[in-house]
Simulated scan of single mutants.
Amino acid sequence: MATLEDLARIIAELPEATEGERHGHPTWSVRGKSIAWLRPFSKADIRRFGDQTPPAQPILAVNTADLHEKEGVLAAGIDGVFTIEHFNNYPAVLIELSVIDPGDLRDLLVDARLAAAPAELAEGFDG
């Protein structure tokens, strides 16, 4: 199970990752390109869960390189990784931090950073 402290530690290890704010919530980017952000559920999101209990907060959204990669991440069946209707046709997955393994979280954040970083930064980082 990952924590916000694990998230902060992993982000700190990513070269040129900076913290900012998006819609009042923490977001992380590399040279202005978003890699991840805390993404609480809206009232509409919660309604769409119907009788199901929504995943527990905090929820982290993590960008993927493209929709093909997103489908691959979802198909991998990583505990804590999911999507919702609002993210249809958007290259990002959602992560329930209290469920995901910290190593899996790190892998997803490294992949997001590599996808967002300019070529010269991506080439110099082996993850």
Rank of each mutant, 00 (worst) to 15 (best):
119 A>H: 03
40 P>G: 07
94 L>P: 02
81 V>F: 07
100 I>N: 14
84 I>C: 08
83 T>H: 02
41 F>S: 13
111 D>N: 14
106 R>S: 14
106 R>A: 13
2 A>Y: 08
37 W>I: 03
21 E>D: 15
78 I>T: 15
88 N>L: 14
2 A>Q: 08
59 I>Y: 11
94 L>I: 02
44 A>H: 08
97 L>E: 12
116 A>N: 01
111 D>W: 13
29 S>F: 04
47 R>T: 10
71 E>I: 00
25 H>R: 07
82 F>D: 03
7 L>W: 08
102 P>H: 09
35 I>V: 13
15 P>V: 02
11 I>Q: 05
84 I>Q: 08
72 G>D: 09
43 K>I: 01
93 V>I: 11
34 S>G: 15
116 A>H: 01
54 P>C: 04
34 S>E: 15
96 E>D: 13
43 K>C: 05
98 S>M: 05
25 H>G: 06
105 L>E: 15
15 P>D: 05
47 R>E: 15
30 V>A: 12
29 S>N: 10
77 G>S: 02
40 P>T: 05
107 D>L: 14
91 P>K: 05
71 E>A: 14
10 I>V: 06
75 A>I: 01
41 F>K: 12
29 S>K: 06
110 V>S: 11
93 V>E: 07
33 K>E: 13
56 A>Q: 13
21 E>I: 04
127 G>Q: 07
11 I>S: 05
36 A>M: 05
7 L>P: 00
32 G>D: 06
51 D>K: 14
109 L>H: 08
45 D>E: 06
6 D>K: 07
63 N>T: 09
45 D>V: 00
40 P>Q: 11
15 P>Q: 08
85 E>L: 13
50 G>K: 12
12 A>C: 04
3 T>S: 15
1 M>T: 10
24 G>V: 03
123 E>R: 13
22 R>A: 15
91 P>S: 04
54 P>E: 03
47 R>I: 03
52 Q>M: 07
69 E>A: 06
105 L>H: 12
88 N>Y: 10
43 K>F: 06
24 G>E: 14
91 P>M: 09
96 E>W: 05
49 F>K: 01
40 P>I: 00
83 T>R: 05
70 K>M: 06
68 H>W: 05
48 R>Q: 07
95 I>C: 10
16 E>P: 00
112 A>T: 00
112 A>M: 02
65 A>L: 09
73 V>L: 04
50 G>Q: 04
61 A>V: 00
10 I>L: 09
24 G>M: 11
113 R>D: 11
113 R>F: 10
49 F>C: 01
120 E>G: 01
90 Y>C: 08
68 H>L: 13
95 I>F: 10
91 P>I: 04
46 I>H: 10
13 E>R: 15
71 E>W: 02
23 H>A: 14
66 D>S: 02
108 L>K: 08
33 K>D: 09
121 L>N: 01
110 V>W: 15
46 I>F: 12
109 L>R: 04
99 V>C: 08
44 A>F: 02
75 A>M: 06
117 A>N: 03
84 I>L: 14
121 L>D: 04
19 E>Y: 07
72 G>M: 02
9 R>N: 11
32 G>Q: 03
105 L>V: 11
72 G>Q: 06
77 G>Q: 02
70 K>H: 01
92 A>S: 13
64 T>H: 07
122 A>F: 00
27 T>H: 14
78 I>L: 11
